[in-house]
Amino acid sequence: MSSDPDAPSDATSTPDASRSGETLLETRGLVKEFGGLVATDDVSIDVKRGERVSIIGPNGAGKSTLINLITRRLEPTRGDILFKGESIVQMEPHQVVQRGISKSFQTASIFPDLTVMENAQIAALAAEHGEFGFNFLTHRDKLTDVHELAEDTLEAVGLLDRAHNDAEDLPYGDKRRLEIGIALAAEPDLLLMDEPTAGMSPEETQATVDLIEEVKEEMGLTFVLVEHDMEIVFSISDRIVVLNRGGVIAEGTPEEIRGDPAVQEAYLGGVEL
């Protein structure tokens, strides 16, 4: 359901996407206005199951706004968002997460005073036992499913040996990994990552890229990535959506985007390609 004529249908026939061509996420004519400013301008994109889609664009292009609209942090002015064929624009953020959209924040958004293990358990609790329950007299030790999921998650992000540390005592890179772990422990179908490598050292960046690769292979997760680091974007993405001034100016495989004149135009004076 792509409204953009620049997005050729062969974008959907990349090896990963063809494995399961079902559309997971779809935005239809999404508009977000802040007063007179149009932050998101008639954006219609679709994401197939198993795909890795990157959203790029110069500063102020509306990338974060788009992510915030999808996660229901912001109310769209117009338009619709479909996830697994179901409209989610009327839902609360936690309901969207329960449907299978998880988000990794731009900053290390963790629970600092809780242990690393508890950080993972919070997300695992929501994944295993839903948005709410009346289990206030149930001892947490009895929730073995939560413990197992939390442990598996920490192992996946390589923080199991630090499970009993307070989360705030972790170095920044580990905090970001924990934050990604929290997003993964929610057992999502779609993971939205808002600049996952921002503020990381080159080594940490590489480790995060490896983690994304690994998770993709193991869990068959679908990713939507907002990223500034073009090297990462081009190496990791199946498809790239380019935003400028709130609207989609190009969409396609990394090769197509690299040669697109509209993209180069948009980036002149912006972030260097």
Binding site: T71, E92, P93, H94, V97, Q98, S102, K103, F105, S109, I110, F111, P112, D113, L114, E118, Q121, I122, A123, L125, A126, A127, H129, G130, E131, G133, N135, F136, L137, T138, H139, R140, L143, V146, I182, A183, A185, A186
Partner: peptide
């Protein structure tokens, strides 16, 4: 119980608690 952990999570980072579902 799970509540004790969720309460502290809300105290620490309410927005994140909402966004884990």
């Amino acid at each position: 119980s799970p509540y004790g952990m969720v309460f502290r999570a809300i105290r620490e980072n309410e927005q994140r608690a909402e966004f884990v579902g």
